[in-house]
Structure formats: C-alpha cells, structure tokens
Simulated scan of single mutants.
Amino acid sequence: MPNLPARRVQAPPQPFDVTKRLSDELVQCTGVDGAGVAVFASASTRDLVYATDTDSEELDEIQFTLGEGPCLDAFRFQHSELHDDMASGEARNRWPIFSSQVLALGAASVYAYPLTIGGEPFGVLEMYGRSPVSLASTEDATCRLYAESIGHAVLAELDPAYALISGTDLKVFRRGNVHVASGMLAARLGVPVEEALVRLRSAAFSQHRRITAVALEIVRGERLDLDSSRHTGIRGDT
C-alpha cells in the first residue's frame, strides 16, 4: 500500500482579518491615536468587533455601559460625530458623564462615523485622540473612505465560521456574556430583558467595574445578584 502524504491541517482564518488590518492602517495614516469597530443589533445592543488598543476598547465600553456618547449618536442619527475637544461645553452638555470619564481616561477628542450599507446603518467606526485637535479635511476624507471599506469588510467577515473561533481572540465579540447575563437576570428577577440590562449597566457603573466582568460572573454563577455588598469574591477588573 503506497505511503500517502499526511493531510495538512489548515488553521482557521483569524476572525476579521481585513477589518483589523484596515483599522490599524487608519490609525497609521491619520492623526488619531486609536480606533474601534462596533456592530449593532439594535440602538442599544451592540458588540465591539475590534479595537486597536486598550483605550479604544475602554472608550467603547464606557459608552456601552452608560448608553450615551458619540458612537451611539452616530448610529442613531446616521451622521458623523466629530468632537475635537471633549472638555468643551457642547460635549459636556450632550454627554456629561461620558465626557468626564473620557477625559479621565486621557482622551481629549472623539470621532465616530456610521457604517452603512444601502443607506442603512449597522455599525460604527470610532476613534480617539489624546490631544484636542480637529481632523484636517484630508484626514476626515480618509476616515470616510476607510469607514466605507471597513463597513464592507465587516459584513463580508460576519460569517458563522468566524463566530465559532471568535472566542480565541479576546478583542472579538466580548459582549455576548452581557446579553446572556441580562437574560438570566430577567428570569431570576421576573423583569423584562431590557430592564435587566439597565440594572446590569447601573451596577457596573456604581461599582466602577466593567460590565463585561460583572456579566461574566453572573454567567459563571459566581454572583447571584447585582449588589456587590452581598457578593464575596469580587475581583478587581482589567
């Protein structure tokens, strides 16, 4: 019997390869310091596909927890949100809590562009700068071109095959546990899922913790309620 060559096991593609590459390129060719890409299931339900750095991830997490910020408004109103100074009166009036937390994080400017296909928004490209500097007209044009390219890339890469391996990449779809935890809380408390999500967000904010960390503890059964004083073993989050 002839010796057959061993079958080569092809490694699965990394999730959102093109989206990641385009996002990294955007940071390199503009004056922004970081970028993130989020996809929406509804105006209040979304997940972070990719973040170029931890501050971009944290900025998106703050908006997700608070339910306010340029990213959400760019999606809701289908237009870009360009804010070169988050300490300005306009930004503070529109998003008072978000603005203060963003400034504490060290981000001075925030920009968001809706991702659309056929005129319908499905996500947002969000960026930040550490200095209060406006995007130059050429940089704005570049961001819009990248938003269009990233939008097509995200849709092409939103395939069930990626969902199966997304758990290997901590920067992809972290918030699945948030929605699972909301469902568990809704059943446990006898309230609608929307109210359970509000309570989860409020608990994370009041405890100064990431909502993803609180949700993971609920899913794992490590905590039975949202009152930190009644839960043992709470750890600091990163």
Rank of each mutant, 00 (worst) to 15 (best):
D169Q: 13
T142I: 14
P121C: 02
M127Q: 03
R130H: 02
A153P: 09
Y146D: 00
A141T: 14
R199C: 04
A153H: 04
R174S: 06
L145A: 12
K171F: 07
E195K: 05
A203G: 07
L170S: 14
V124C: 07
A187H: 10
L170T: 14
L185N: 01
G167C: 03
P132N: 06
A136V: 11
V193Y: 05
A141I: 09
L145H: 09
Q207C: 07
R209T: 13
D159S: 12
S134I: 05
L164N: 08
M184W: 09
S134P: 14
R201Y: 03
S149P: 07
I150Y: 07
H152F: 07
L155Q: 08
T138C: 07
P121N: 01
N177D: 10
A163H: 14
R144L: 08
P121T: 08
L164F: 12
Q207E: 15
P160L: 03
S166Q: 10
R130Y: 03
N177Q: 14
A196E: 00
S131C: 04
E195N: 12
Q207A: 13
G190W: 03
A203Y: 05
R201S: 12
V178D: 11
N177F: 11
R188G: 11
E126C: 02
H152C: 08
V133C: 08
G190H: 05
P160E: 02
Q207L: 06
V193F: 07
I150E: 04
I165V: 15
G176L: 09
S134K: 10
T168H: 15
A187S: 07
A147Y: 03
V154F: 02
P132M: 03
L197M: 11
P160C: 04
S149A: 09
G151N: 01
G190D: 05
E195L: 14
E195P: 04
G167Y: 13
G151H: 05
G190F: 00
R209G: 06
R188I: 06
A163F: 15
E148N: 12
E157D: 04
L200Y: 09
H179F: 15
V198L: 12
S149C: 13
F205A: 15
A187N: 11
L155P: 06
S131N: 07
F205T: 09
E148R: 12
V124W: 05
P160Y: 11
D159C: 01
A203S: 11
K171M: 09
S149K: 13
R199I: 00
C143P: 01
A163S: 14
R188P: 09
L135G: 02
E194Q: 11
L189I: 07
G190I: 06
R130A: 02
S131F: 02
A163I: 13
V133H: 04
G183H: 02
L185R: 03
E194H: 06
T168E: 14
N177K: 15
R144T: 04
H208C: 11
T142F: 08
L170R: 15
N177E: 10
E195W: 11
A163D: 14
